[in-house]
Computed example of a mutant assay.
Amino acid sequence: MLSTLQVVTTVTVGLMVGVEFSVAVIMSRILDALPGDGRQQGHAHGGRLLGALMPFWYGGSLVLSAVWAVAAWDRSGTPLVVVAAGLLLLSVLMSVLLLVPINNRNKNWTPENRPADWEEQLGRWSRYHYVRVAVIIAAFTLLVTALV
């Protein structure tokens, strides 16, 4: 049972890392290259789509890693899982406090109602997102290391 939990947790976090890394490195560049209002509209659509999914993914990853830490408390590698869970908690806090407020504004913007500083706000979101991606990559790395 513990092995199944470890695999499910690692795959779940790994997929989340892949999606978020793709958003940071690939999708943002694609959206930023769109002409006219396409850039802002693409970011708004992405914010609506991923904004609906990611709370469950981040929360689920945190819960799975915490359950793994408790279930394997007396085994080697558990300190790594505990630190990974702490990093995932940090990523959730970063999301709620820094990224979600910007995303909640952005997902409702249109070319007619967006604020004058919309590009600055998207830039700030991107910088926070890069840090969050680094945090979840570190968590994923610790989970994988705990397996070996």
Rank of each mutant, 00 (worst) to 15 (best):
L142I: 13
L98Y: 14
L90S: 04
A52Q: 13
V63S: 00
V25E: 11
G46E: 06
S61A: 09
G14F: 00
A139Q: 05
L64Y: 07
S91F: 14
T4S: 10
S28M: 03
V96Q: 09
I26Y: 11
A44N: 06
S91P: 12
P111C: 00
D74W: 14
I26K: 02
T145H: 03
L87Q: 04
A85M: 05
G38E: 02
P115S: 04
I136E: 06
G18Q: 00
N106A: 11
T141L: 13
L5Y: 07
L64S: 03
W118I: 10
A71V: 06
P101R: 02
A116Q: 09
S126T: 10
A24G: 08
T12H: 14
A116F: 00
Y58V: 11
N104P: 05
G14K: 02
R124F: 00
W57Y: 11
P79K: 12
S3Q: 15
Q41M: 15
P101T: 01
H129P: 05
P111F: 03
T4K: 03
P79A: 08
W125G: 01
I137P: 06
S126C: 01
V96E: 01
R48K: 11
T78N: 13
L53Y: 05
R132Q: 07
L5T: 05
L99A: 07
R48G: 08
R124Y: 02
A66Y: 08
L99M: 12
A146R: 07
L97V: 09
I137M: 14
